[in-house]
C-alpha cells in the first residue's frame, strides 16, 4: 500500500467504525460518543492552529460560543429554521475569527496567548451582559420542535449520533485534505521555522490569518452543532475552561495529527466519566492520568503511534 492508501484506510476505517457503533452501542455510551464526536470536531479546529501552524490560542471558547449563540439566538429571537441558524452560527465564528486574527496576529508567542484570552473574556462578558437575549449563565433550552433539520428530529438519539458523525467526518477529511495542499504545507512551514517560510516568499501573516479563520470556523461549526444537537446554549461554553479543554484534548491525543483530537477528546471524556464514578476528587485522578501520559507519551497518543509504528500518520 502507498502512504496515501494507508492514510485513507485508517481515516475511512475510523469513520466506518463509528458508523457501525451507532447500531451496537448501549444507550449510555451511544450518547457519550455523539457528544465526544462534536467535541472532537472542536478539537480538530483547535489543532489546525496549534498542531499545524504552531499558534497557541487560549481563547477558543469564543469561537465555540460564537457558533453556539449565532445558531441559538437566531432560532430563539429570529425564528430561524435549524439549517439557516447553523449557517448563522458558522458565519459568526468565521467573522469573529477574522477580526480576532487581524488584531491578535500582530503579536506572537505569550502575547498572542494573552490577547486571545482577553478576546475570549470579552465575548464571555458580552454574553453575560446581553442577558436579556442570552439569559446569561442560566442559558436557554432549544425546544425539540425547533431542532428538526430537513425533517430529521435531532433530539432522537440515533439521528443525533449520525448528525454528529457527519459533522466530524466532514471536518476530519477537510483538514486531512487541507494539510496535504500547498496552503497546509505553508502552515507546517510556519510552525517549523517562520522566518525561513517568510524568506521563501510566503506571506506569513496572511497564511496565519487563514489558519485562524479555518480554525475558528470549524470550532464554531462544532459549537453550533453542539447547541442544536443537545438543545441548549449557555455561557459556560464561553468560559476559560472551554478554551483549555481543546488544548488538553489536542495535547493528549497528539498535536499535529488528524486523529489525535478525537483520541484526546475520547480519552479525557471517559477518564473524567470513570473517575467521577469512583470519587468526588475525579479531577485529581484525571490530573494524575494526564501527568502520567505527558511523562510517558509527550507527543500524545497519536504522536506516540506515529513515532513507534505508523511513521506515515498525518
Amino acid at each position: 500500500m502507498t502512504e496515501t492508501q494507508k492514510i485513507l484506510v485508517l481515516h475511512v476505517g475510523l469513520i466506518a467504525l463509528l458508523f457501525a457503533l451507532n447500531f451496537i452501542l448501549p444507550a449510555y455510551h451511544h450518547g457519550n460518543l455523539a457528544r465526544v464526536m462534536v467535541l472532537a470536531t472542536y478539537a480538530i479546529g483547535y489543532n489546525v492552529m496549534l498542531g499545524y501552524t504552531g499558534l497557541l490560542s487560549l481563547g477558543h471558547a469564543m469561537f465555540f460560543a460564537a457558533g453556539m449563540y449565532g445558531m441559538a439566538l437566531s432560532i430563539r429571537h429570529l425564528g430561524f429554521a435549524p439549517a439557516p441558524a447553523l449557517l448563522v452560527g458558522i458565519a459568526s465564528g468565521a467573522g469573529l475569527a477574522l477580526v480576532v486574527g487581524l488584531l491578535a496576529l500582530r503579536t506572537a508567542g505569550v502575547a498572542f496567548m494573552i490577547v486571545t484570552l482577553m478576546f475570549a473574556q470579552t465575548v464571555y462578558l458580552t454574553i453575560l451582559l446581553a442577558g436579556r437575549w442570552t439569559r446569561g449563565d442560566e442559558g436557554f433550552v432549544i425546544q425539540q420542535h425547533e431542532r428538526v433539520l430537513w425533517g430529521i428530529d435531532l433530539s432522537d438519539p440515533s439521528s443525533r449520533y449520525l448528525a454528529a458523525l457527519t459533522l466530524f467526518a466532514i471536518c476530519l477529511f477537510a483538514t486531512l485534505n487541507l494539510i496535504r495542499r500547498p496552503l497546509g504545507r505553508v502552515f507546517v512551514a510556519i510552525r517549523e521555522n517562520e522566518e525561513r517560510a517568510r524568506l521563501l516568499g510566503y506571506n506569513v501573516f496572511r497564511a496565519k490569518l487563514f489558519s485562524v479563520v479555518i480554525s475558528g470556523t470549524i470550532s464554531a461549526a462544532a459549537g453550533a452543532s453542539y447547541g442544536l444537537l443537545f438543545g441548549y446554549a449557555g455561557a459556560t461554553f464561553a468560559t476559560v475552561q472551554y478554551s483549555i479543554f481543546p488544548l488538553l484534548w489536542v495535547l493528549l491525543g497528539g498535536t499535529g495529527t488528524i486523529i489525535g483530537p478525537f483520541l484526546g477528546a475520547l480519552f479525557m471524556f471517559y477518564l473524567i466519566d470513570l473517575s467521577s464514578g469512583v470519587t468526588n476528587a475525579y479531577m485529581l485522578i484525571a490530573g494524575v492520568a494526564l501527568v502520567v501520559l505527558v511523562m510517558f507519551a509527550p507527543q500524545g497518543i497519536a504522536g506516540e503511534l506515529r513515532r513507534r509504528i505508523w511513521s506515515w500518520l498525518p
Binding site: 507546517v188 512551514a189 517549523e192 521555522n193 522566518e195 525561513r196 524568506l199
Partner: peptide, 10 residues
C-alpha cells in the same frame, strides 16, 4: 542563511 535554517522536522 549563514546559520543553517532548514525545516528540521520535514
Amino acid at each position: 542563511f549563514q546559520i543553517t535554517s532548514v525545516f528540521g522536522q520535514l
